[in-house]
C-alpha cells in the first residue's frame, strides 16, 4: 500500500532522515519507534507533504506522491494526526468533525452559499456521520464543547476523530498517547485496535513502548534519521542495535 524508498531530508548539512526504506501493507498496524530526535515526526512530515524530501520516493497505492501538497496527499487517502495545534480551537467538537469531512462533503461553493436543499440535506448527513465518529471515539458527550477548552487527553482523542472523519485509507498517528493519563491511554489503545480491526491501515509513532508493543504487529526503528531495525515485537526487543540505541538514551525497550 505504502512504499517508501531511500527517503532523505537534509536540513543545512544535517540529515534529519536518511535513506529510509519501508513499506506498509494493506490492513497492517505498524509502529514507528526510536529515541527522541530520531527523525520520526520529520518522517511523517515527509510522508504527508509538509516537508519536501531532499531525495527518495513515496508511493501510495502504486502512485508516486512524492512532494505533493499535503491536501492532495490527504485526498489520496493518507491522513495524519498532529501533536500540537491538533484541533480547531474555536469550533465546537461537532463542528471540528463537520469541517474535517471537507473532502467527502460533496458540496460546492454555490450550493453551500445559497444553502440549497441538497446542501442542507447533505449537511444533516455530515452531522450524523460526525456524531457516529464521536460515538466510535467515545467522546459523544463533548459534542457541544468548544475544542479549545477540552482537557489535553480529550483534545488528543478529538485529533484522532478529526483524522478519522476524512475516512483515511492509511492513518498516521503521531504519538497519540503523549501526555495522557493511564485510563486515557488504555481507552486510546483500545480505540486504535478497534480502528485497525475495522480495516483501517495504521502507522503509529509512539514513545510509550509497552503500549506500542501491545498493539503493533510490526515495527520500524529509527535512530539518528536512519532505519536501524525492522520486524516483529520479539525481534525488535532482542535486536542489539535497538537495545544499544535505547540504552544510550536511558529508556528501556520493554
Amino acid at each position: 500500500m505504502l512504499q517508501v524508498e531511500r527517503l532523505t531530508k537534509n536540513f543545512g548539512g544535517l540529515a534529519a532522515v536518511s535513506l529510509v526504506d519501508m513499506s506498509v501493507r494493506q490492513g497492517e498496524l505498524v509502529g514507528l519507534i526510536g529515541p527522541n530526535g530520531a527523525g520520526k515526526t520529520t518522517f511523517f512530515n515527509l510522508l504527508t507533504g509538509y516537508i519536501k524530501p531532499s531525495e527518495g520516493r513515496v508511493r501510495f497505492e502504486g502512485k508516486d506522491i512524492t512532494g505533493r501538497k499535503p491536501h492532495r496527499i490527504a485526498s489520496a487517502g493518507i491522513v495524519r494526526s498532529f501533536q500540537q495545534d491538533n484541533v480547531f480551537a474555536e469550533f465546537t467538537v461537532l463542528d471540528n468533525l463537520r469541517l474535517a469531512q471537507h473532502l467527502n462533503s460533496g458540496i460546492n461553493f454555490w450550493q453551500t452559499v445559497f444553502s440549497t436543499g441538497g446542501a442542507r440535506r447533505r449537511e444533516r448527513e455530515i452531522r450524523q456521520e460526525a456524531e457516529e465518529i464521536l460515538e466510535l471515539v467515545g467522546i459523544s458527550q463533548l459534542a457541544g464543547t468548544a475544542a479549545g477548552s477540552l482537557p489535553h487527553g480529550h483534545k488528543r482523542m478529538l485529533g484522532i476523530a478529526i483524522a478519522l472523519a476524512c475516512r483515511p485509507k492509511l492513518l498516521l498517528l503521531d504519538e497519540p498517547l503523549a501526555g495522557m493519563n493511564i485510563a486515557e491511554v488504555d481507552e486510546t489503545i483500545a480505540l486504535v485496535r478497534r480502528l485497525w480491526e475495522n480495516g483501517t491501515t495504521i502507522l503509529l509513532i509512539e514513545h510509550n513502548m509497552r503500549a506500542a508493543m501491545s498493539v503493533c504487529q510490526r515495527f520500524c526503528v529509527l535512530n539518528f534519521g536512519r532505519k536501524i531495525a525492522e520486524g516483529t515485537p520479539d525481534e525488535i526487543k532482542n535486536d542489539p542495535e535497538v537495545v544499544k540505541a535505547y540504552l544510550g538514551t536511558g529508556s528501556s525497550v520493554a
Binding site: T48, Y50, K69, P70, H71, A74, S75, V79, R80, F82, D85, N86, V87, F88, A89, E90, F91, D95, R98, L99, A100, H102, L103, S105, I107, F109, T112, V113, F114, S115, A119, E123, I162, A163, A165, C166
Partner: peptide
C-alpha cells in the same frame, strides 16, 4: 451568506490551524 456557509467555516478553520486544515484535505 458566504460567512455562515461551509466556505466561511473553512476560512475560519484555516485561520485557527492551517496545517490541520491542510491535513484534512483543504486546499488552504
Amino acid at each position: 451568506a458566504i460567512e455562515r456557509s461551509r466556505v466561511g467555516m473553512t476560512f475560519l478553520g484555516i485561520r485557527q490551524a492551517d496545517s490541520l486544515a491542510e491535513s484534512v484535505g483543504i486546499n488552504t
